[in-house]
């Protein structure tokens, strides 16, 4: 039997990792209170990714595991990245393709000018404005 090969994480290691995860949870709650502008979301994602990495590497013991499992997990994550980024290539750029409706670009400009004449305040015709 080759059970000696199974890595046994010490209670000390597991406790340190648990402490680290609790610390990072407190950190993400605190940094969310700060207004960092565009950096709030990347920071929260960076902290969450660090926490997930700790769980995967130590708690799930991928560090000491058969490398084929790391490959399976890595390929899975790769496809999640492809899924999210390729979807965003589409959805973030749809505004560039507004002339795909019926009528020409000129028709649409005439339509937009008519709307502008009815409602001079440009911000008022934004359909998704937040209430004052």
């Amino acid at each position: 039997m080759s059970h000696a090969e199974h890595h046994i994480s010490s209670i000390k290691t597991l406790t340190i990792v648990f402490g680290g995860l609790v610390f990072l949870t407190v950190l993400t709650v605190l940094t969310a209170q700060l207004d960092l502008g565009a950096f709030n979301v990347p920071l929260a994602l960076a902290i969450a990714t660090t926490k997930a990495a700790l769980v995967v590497v130590i708690f799930m013991a991928l560090k000491w595991d058969n490398k084929v499992n790391t490959a399976i997990f890595g390929i899975g994550i790769l496809f999640v990245i492809v899924f999210i980024s390729f979807t965003l290539f589409d959805t973030l750029n749809r505004g560039d393709l507004t002339n795909t409706t019926k009528g020409t670009v000129q028709d649409q400009q005439i339509q937009a000018e008519k709307l502008q004449a009815q409602e001079p305040d440009a911000s008022a015709i934004q359909f998704n404005r937040t209430p004052q």
Binding site: V68, G76, V80, F83, I84, T87, L88, N128
Partner: peptide, 30 residues
């Protein structure tokens, strides 16, 4: 058994990633 479990976990990750994509798309739009 463990490799089978990791393969299953990847299908779970992909299940949730579909919902994360919905979140990301609506969040970037609104």
């Amino acid at each position: 058994a463990k490799m089978g479990m990791w393969l299953f976990l990847v299908t779970e990750i992909l299940l949730f990633s579909g919902m994360f994509v919905a979140y990301v798309v609506y969040r970037t739009w609104h």
